[in-house]
């Protein structure tokens, strides 16, 4: 039985070898693809605007043209915040999977997203005039609450956080926090605002969100990159990392704070968007190997591309209505989750 489990662990964590050249290609090609996706995102929508106008709206802005105003005030902030949020979620997932060595670790599965949503229900209910930056701070606290609860259950649980326990603990914490959030929202009659925001995705994103996302991104992604090497080592196993002289507690703690920061900021801007943090790190590791110095930058590029494309889908699927972008990422992510469940649930 123990042998089988060990074998299973190895199977889950067996990753392809590192491919730095391939990774550089992804970084380079991915950046180009990201800019193309951003361009498409800006040009597609209720009123189609051709690429030339997009170009001139960005570089020779003329405030008298409606199309230029649409681009500057509506489409550009939406596209850019989509890219940032996608990158944040992907990196959060990569960090979580790296430190827990658990293939199902991701912010939406672990109740972190619901924690942030819970905090926002409180803010919307009791402090409706709160400014943007404070909302983000609250989301950060809420993400922390969700994280602490899930990891707390893991620490108390017999046998630790196995993939299935992690998923179940995430469901339980998520259900608890989101039902409390609904109760609070219903009582204070902000339920409609809440659900609009929760499923709203990137609708109505403004430049101010980007001003707040950017510093979080620089700090969060920066620390994630600094931690990358330690996480590669940690991913070999806690004992190995300790044997190599790593302060594993410090690395894990810092990584979790980064996850809270990135996820909290994402949720406060874009609501609950699941599965990017689950899917992208797996794809990235499949492509570039397990060296997190490559995984983290590549995951952030790929996450950005995925969310920008999903957001285009959200607008185009059922015009003029918006489809929640979280539903689209879920439709993409669920088959992937099922694949992982088949592979990882091999008890």
């Amino acid at each position: 039985m123990a042998n089988a489990k060990k074998h299973k662990d190895r199977e889950i964590n067996s990753q392809p070898e590192n491919r730095p050249i391939f990774a550089s290609v992804i970084l380079f090609g991915g950046t180009i693809a990201l800019f193309l996706a951003l361009g498409a995102s800006v040009s597609l929508g209720a009123s189609e605007i051709d690429f030339k106008t997009v170009w001139s709206a960005i570089f020779q802005f003329n405030s008298e043209l409606t199309s230029h105003q649409i681009i500057q005030e509506v489409r550009l902030p939406r596209a850019i915040s989509g890219a940032l949020v996608g990158a944040f979620l992907a990196v959060s997932g990569a960090l979580l999977q790296g430190i827990t060595r658990n293939p199902l670790a991701a912010p939406s599965i672990m109740g972190i997203t619901d924690g942030a949503a819970f905090a926002l229900a409180i803010v919307f209910s009791f402090f409706p005039t709160t400014g943007y930056s404070m909302i983000m701070f609250w989301a950060f606290l809420g993400a922390g609450l969700g994280t602490i609860l899930v990891f707390g259950i893991g620490a108390l649980a017999k046998g630790g956080l196995t993939p299935v326990k992690l998923a179940l603990a995430g469901i339980a914490v998520g259900a608890l926090l989101s039902s409390l959030a609904s109760g609070i929202a219903i009582y204070n009659q902000v339920a409609q605002n809440m659900s609009f925001w929760y499923a709203g995705g990137l609708v109505g994103t403004q430049w101010i969100s980007i001003k707040l996302l950017l510093p979080v991104g620089i700090i969060g992604l920066g620390i994630a990159f600094i931690l990358a090497h330690s996480i590669t080592v940690l991913n070999l196993g806690e004992d190995v990392a300790k044997g190599l002289g790593q302060r594993t507690f410090f690395v894990k703690g810092l990584a979790i704070i980064v996850v809270m920061l990135l996820t909290g900021a994402s949720v406060s801007v874009a609501g609950a968007i699941g599965f990017i943090g689950l899917v992208i790190p797996h794809i990235t590791r499949f492509l570039v190997g397990t060296d997190y110095r490559w995984v983290i930058p590549c995951a952030s590029i790929l996450g950005a591309i995925l969310l920008v494309l999903a957001d285009i889908g959200a607008r185009m699927l059922n015009p003029p209505f918006e489809t929640p972008v979280g539903a689209i990422t879920a439709v993409i992510g669920v088959p992937f989750f099922l694949y992982l469940a088949r592979k990882g649930g091999n008890a």
């Binding site: 199902l104 993939p163 299935v164 998923a167 179940l168 469901i171 669920v334 989750f337 099922l338 992982l340 469940a341 088949r342 990882g344 649930g345 091999n346 008890a347």
Partner: peptide
């Protein structure tokens, strides 16, 4: 596996 697949 049943539970994990169910969640998905």
């Amino acid at each position: 596996r049943l539970i994990l697949v169910g969640i998905g």
